[in-house]
Design a protein around this nucleic acid. Structure first.
Length: 555
RNA sequence: GGUCCUUUAGUGGAACUGGUCAACACGUCUCCCUCUCAAGGAGAAGAAUAGGAGUUCGAGUCUCCUAAGGAUCACCA
């Protein structure tokens, strides 16, 4: 016992604080009885992953609905993989999704009394705990080199025993304190390992909030808790941080499930109460018929920024993620079409255990519905926000005449079944650019106009001219359309498709054919929103100009 | 390879503590509406609940075996 203390003092001579001091420094949170404390603990190694946003949504929801706390902590202990500035970016994106916490690491500053919330700044706290472990003989320095460990692993694999640093393979575990001190004083590099008391043969019963009761093997690995760079490993940081920050539920990806026994033993060794755990299913993707984890490298949709760039509304992405988080969410949404997600009650047992495939079609559907619901003014605002960042040309175009743009967005909005034309903001421009110059001219001239070849060019010209001459924009839609029918009739077209089909020989076509001529002249395409509204927005002068232009192209 | 997790139509998934034709949503297809498209309306197809055995009057639901998919086995998180 004396010896362990001696060793601890050799390793951490300057650490004088005790566990008790820390407990006083980070007292229990003053929260209602059932309040849950959750957290998001990303490492600054890149952009916000779609799967991460998923866990954030869940963690925040659980905290909010229990009137608890949701905070962020930056896990920047892997200095090698750290990407400059990505911590700030991560928080920026949380803000965009409106799920930024009010405690913890917030990018450019931090908030809260349980900090620091950046692990690299917590080195001394970890050392206090390690020193305590050291003094009780539950941790020890290990001088094995990477090469030695590699050799050990190969040996174990060859002999078909469980690989790792444990039991009789844990060489440095049996080093005497004097030997260890001698090597440290000699300047030999070392790490500190946890001394496990577990036995792989023993099973432990654990509870997961999502998966229920599980039977796992006890940990027997002497894992590294303190790296040679002076920073803790994930496992150890998890123990210390989630204890002193008083996390009540750890929400993390299911890839952590296998290391749960390690964490449980760690908590036990400190005689601390372990938090509850919820291991979330991972979002998958179908690749050549095989399911696999959404990968940062291969899948553009793994980065949440992809959806932002493509112009999916933030709430559509959240809505979709909630749909896969809780199976009853969609049902709830149908019953409460206008409610905020805050009113939905999330529960872990409504969560699927299997990793959901990312279903872009479903997202597109949700997005289309959502965009369809926006009013014309909301739509203009959203489009300004989007194009400002992702499509400057279009942004300028909108700003030039906002009223004009809003009118375009308003087409058939007030009808019983409003148009649902747009899935993403990014496709708006390509669908309406015919309303703008120079795009109109470009569209009209870049490829042959799709006029129906069954009709004589001269006939088309004549009809178009008469169409402009007789056009009265003051008419309502009904009247306007009847006059189009009158015009069509005059040139031998049927009033509608039914009539035409009944007597195909008595007509040369039907009113739709005439409408098509007008549509192509005004938009260059056979498909567009309701012509009546386009006419109203363009105004008589522009209509005349376009019709004449189309006629000139017919020669 | 060891360990653990998972497995219901193309996709997401419902089915409470075993009990009528295995919901619903997206997607697909057909028809209707309609000046085109989008939307909307009506309908259809699509699953012997991974396979097998067992328990039971009765199993997607309980038990066992097999298979497949996934995760994990670092001084990375």
């Amino acid at each position: 016992m004396e010896d362990y203390i001696k060793l601890a003092n050799v390793i951490f001579p300057n650490i004088t604080k005790t566990i008790d001091d820390l407990e006083k420094e980070y007292p229990s949170r003053n929260l209602p009885a059932n309040a849950e404390v959750t957290r998001f603990a990303p490492s600054p190694t890149g952009f916000l992953h779609t799967g991460s946003l998923f866990t954030v949504l869940v963690a925040k929801k659980v905290a909010d609905q229990s009137k608890g706390v949701f905070y962020t902590r930056l896990e920047d202990t892997d200095t090698k993989r750290e990407v400059e500035g990505s911590g700030e970016e991560l928080l920026e994106q949380l803000k965009i999704f409106n799920v930024a916490p009010n405690e913890g690491y917030l990018g450019n500053h931090e908030e809260g009394i349980y900090g620091p919330y950046k692990q690299s700044l917590r080195a001394d706290i970890y050392k206090v705990v390690i020193k305590d472990l050291l003094m009780r003989g539950r941790a020890y320095p290990c001088f094995c080199s990477q090469d030695e460990l590699k050799a050990l692993r190969e040996e174990q694999e060859k002999n078909k025993v469980i690989p790792g640093y444990y039991g009789k393979y844990a060489k440095c575990r049996n080093l005497t304190v004097d030997e260890a001190i001698k090597r440290i004083e000699n300047g030999d590099p070392y790490v500190i390992r946890f001394k496990s008391l577990g036995d792989h043969e023993n099973k432990i019963e654990v509870h997961d909030e999502i998966r229920g009761d599980l039977s796992l093997s006890q940990n027997d690995q002497d894992i590294v808790i303190y790296k040679s760079d002076g920073l803790p490993t994930y496992h150890f940081a998890h123990l210390v941080d989630d204890h002193f920050m008083h996390t009540t539920i750890v929400t993390r990806g299911e890839e952590w499930l296998p290391s749960l026994p390690i964490h449980l033993e760690l908590f036990e060794s400190m005689n601390w109460k372990a938090p509850k755990y919820a291991h979330l299913p991972v979002i998958m993707k179908l690749d050549n018929g095989n399911k696999r984890k959404l990968s940062k490298r291969k899948d553009s949709e793994a980065a949440i920024s992809y959806f932002l760039e493509d112009g999916y509304p933030v709430s559509a992405v959240k809505e979709y993620l909630y749909t896969i988080a809780n199976s009853n969410y969609e049902e709830w949404r149908m019953e409460h079409p206008d409610a905020s997600y805050d009113e939905f009650t999330f529960s872990f047992d409504k969560m699927s255990l299997d990793g959901a495939l990312f279903d872009l079609e479903k997202l597109r559907n949700i997005s289309k519905e959502l965009i369809g619901k926006y009013s014309k003014d909301e739509m203009t605002e959203e489009m300004k926000k989007y194009t400002k960042v992702y499509d400057r040309n279009f942004y300028e175009l909108i700003l030039k005449d906002e009223e004009y743009f809003t009118k375009i967005m308003d087409i058939e909005k007030d009808k019983p079944n409003p148009r649902k034309d747009y899935v993403t903001y990014s496709e708006v421009f390509s669908k309406i650019k015919f309303m703008y110059e120079p795009y109109y001219t470009e569209l009209m001239t870049s490829s042959p106009l799709p006029f129906n070849p069954n009709f004589d060019k001269e006939l088309i010209k004549k009809i178009l001219l008469e169409f402009v001459d007789t056009l009265d924009l003051n008419n309502d839609e009904q009247t306007w359309f009847s006059s189009l029918k009158t015009l069509a009739n005059k040139y031998g077209f049927a009033n509608n498709m039914k009539e035409f089909k009944k007597n195909p020989t008595s007509y040369i076509g039907q009113v739709g054919d005439v409408a098509e001529m007008v549509r192509i002249s005004l938009t260059s395409s056979k498909q567009s929103p309701n012509i009546y509204y386009i006419l109203k927005i363009l105004g008589i002068n522009e209509i005349r100009r376009r019709i004449n232009f189309a006629i000139s192209l017919l020669n």
